[in-house]
């Protein structure tokens, strides 16, 4: 627990929001496969974070903490929706695809559909590693697991994705 005054919480939250909101939103988007749902979840993540901020130590790893909240939020949402395996980007994606060629849209759909076929425990490290470019150490902090576990999950995730993507393609 810190002695930060309430106003400083708001300022800190504004900083965290500007630095991490977009990344968290995209992480959630790749996790749940639905832009509107990801937007709602991102709001929920930062709302939860803002309420928990007074209890957080000053030296906390804010990014890892936010990703952990986001991962839990995504897991909860997916559990509620029974993984939304039927979801397709065609129905839900609200990307600004006006600048994207049709074949690229199709390609993105295939990638997302393959991602959605992965169990969430494998999907999250793969998104964090390959989509967002985080290191194994960072992912370990974000997911609250060991680096060895991250590497093992990544290895498994890559094989599962390979099969799913080949199947989709």
């Amino acid at each position: 627990m810190t002695g930060r005054p309430a106003d400083s919480h708001k300022m800190l939250m504004e900083v965290l929001y500007s630095e991490h909101h977009r990344a968290i939103l995209n992480y959630l988007y790749r996790m749940v496969g639905d832009a509107a749902r990801a937007e709602d979840l991102a709001q929920e993540v930062f709302l939860r974070a803002f309420r928990a901020l007074p209890k957080l130590p000053d030296a906390a790893n804010y990014r890892a903490w936010l990703y952990r909240i986001a991962t839990n939020a995504a897991y909860d949402a997916l559990r509620r929706q029974r993984l939304l395996q039927w979801l397709s980007l065609r129905e839900t994606d609200v990307d600004d695809s006006s600048s994207v060629r049709p074949e690229q849209v199709i390609q993105h759909e295939l990638v997302q559909e393959a991602l959605m076929k992965l169990p969430t425990t494998y999907r999250s490290p793969l998104v964090l590693f390959s989509v967002q470019g985080h290191t194994v150490r960072e992912i370990a902090q974000m997911l609250g697991i060991s680096e060895g576990a991250v590497k093992t999950r990544l290895s498994r995730a890559r094989e599962l994705f390979r099969k799913a993507y080949d199947h989709e393609a």
Binding site: H21, E39, Q43, D96, V100
Partner: peptide
């Protein structure tokens, strides 16, 4: 295969958000 995976995943179009932190703090 992993190289192709990384390329495909990294090429995914990122989402842009319309929401703001001020709106969030109002809600909070």
């Amino acid at each position: 295969a992993y190289e192709r995976q990384d390329a495909a995943l990294a090429a995914l179009t990122p989402l842009t958000s319309q929401s703001s932190c001020a709106h969030l703090l109002d809600r909070a």
